[in-house]
Write a protein that binds this DNA or RNA. Sequence first.
DNA 1: ACATCTCGTTCACGTTTCGTGAACATTTAT
DNA 2: ATAAATGTTCACGAAACGTGAACGAGATGT
Lengths: 274, 274
Amino acid sequence: MSRPTISDPAEMDGRVARTTVTSFRIVDALRDRDAVGVTELADELSLGKGTVHKHLNTLHEMEYVVKERGKYRLSLGFLGLGASVRTRMPIYRVIQQPLENLAESTGEAASVLIPEHTSGIYLARVTTGTEPPAELYEGKRVPLTATAAGKAILAYLPADERDRILDESGLPKLTDNTITDRETMLEELQTIHDDRTAHDRGELEADRHCVASPITDADNTAIAAVSVSGPAERMREKSIRQDFPSILGSTATSIKNRVANEQSKRQASADPNR
Amino acid sequence: MSRPTISDPAEMDGRVARTTVTSFRIVDALRDRDAVGVTELADELSLGKGTVHKHLNTLHEMEYVVKERGKYRLSLGFLGLGASVRTRMPIYRVIQQPLENLAESTGEAASVLIPEHTSGIYLARVTTGTEPPAELYEGKRVPLTATAAGKAILAYLPADERDRILDESGLPKLTDNTITDRETMLEELQTIHDDRTAHDRGELEADRHCVASPITDADNTAIAAVSVSGPAERMREKSIRQDFPSILGSTATSIKNRVANEQSKRQASADPNR
DNA sequence: ACATCTCGTTCACGTTTCGTGAACATTTAT
DNA sequence: ATAAATGTTCACGAAACGTGAACGAGATGT
């Protein structure tokens, strides 16, 4: 989603390895299809058949691509890479329990979103009942401006970094409710900062409402956000009886404290004195 | 684990894009460390600082690498790639329920292993109780020769493909119990084929026992394997009271049928007639 | 506070090699 | 069986990758 597939070959001259870019353009293309042939890929990416074949063969040798009856697809090697990246994040190791509690007590899907580059990526999600499976969200990239969790993060980022993100990512319109005006967004972020709670009323997906709280570090800067989301109507009803903001707030502080604990533990074990 | 990090630059001449290989050598190196600097990486991979920097910068531009205070690490972009690859596999969409049932009825960790290239990769795992978290296994690469699920797959592969895998991967010794002799392995595979059940008594991890059944396609060729595993002693006790082979066998056929159903559904929807 | 050292970043150049196009081989469709 | 389409290989020219050294920023220690 709105990934910078580096289509402007002019601006980035000596600083980038073009061959690698081509390889990852192929990886990105494979990501969105089931199994694909050389010619098809070459046409789609406007590359020579020979070139595409060489790259696919390279990825195949490294076992990042599987070849089945002349067609190519990405291998499960990427599953290992993704799992490794996620498991290495200190915050990931402490959110499982809080997320499960949150999903349990609200009866809705609970997620943690992490800011990376200029967008947000779902780190984990716990679903209840008949919600779409968590796998469809984990690893998914969304604009920070079009989701409650993303706005919660933006509201608790240093102003210069927040502005940089808004500059680079813009405010893409995903539904009729998406905020696309920068001034409006800045006002909204101010409100969110005051409340420590962000709302999303169908800004990412039309029928989906979402409430979120930022997870901050010692400097009160966002490192992530927790959120619950569900069908618009059901969320509206529940919000009358349940105090989403306070539930999310306590989940967020719980996660924050666990992260802090983890970090002090790590420092203690890395530093054998004390 | 035993990935072919392409260390022999001689044998693969014009057929491979060397720049891409270098980039993925860097990715593979990043995978196993937390966050790393240019110099450190350059030394480890015996590359120039400039080279490493250019590659990291490339990966950064494409948002596959994150830069934090001069150190680099892999981004969650790989999480999305991995999730996408896995979700695209038809078998993945049908194993959740059977795996949960299996874990429930045996009280042990239940997994599905998929063969890729010459090794096996855990596609999914459901754990119960105090087992190590499933995330540590999902995406993990293991030798097919050193685990019950892997042997179950080997036993139900065409002889030529089985031999090719044994040729290429060898029989690496991981514990004192690992089978390292090819003849012994072939006999074992024969037994496994007869029983449709494979056993692993500490061949991958010393204190871990594992029982597995192959999941086959219409041709009776393995496309995966289901397994349960747990601490050696507990597994030994349980195996007296529980009939692991028959539980695994029915799980395997259940999965097999579900996969077949999925495929006929897909064909029906892709083919608008009838 | 200063000096020094380390590390990340940039740059120019020579040479590897990447990408192109066409030919060949192999598979699929007719 | 024939033909069309697709995967694979090859040779060559042009592009750019990797090397080494220089620069600059940041950390470290005195």
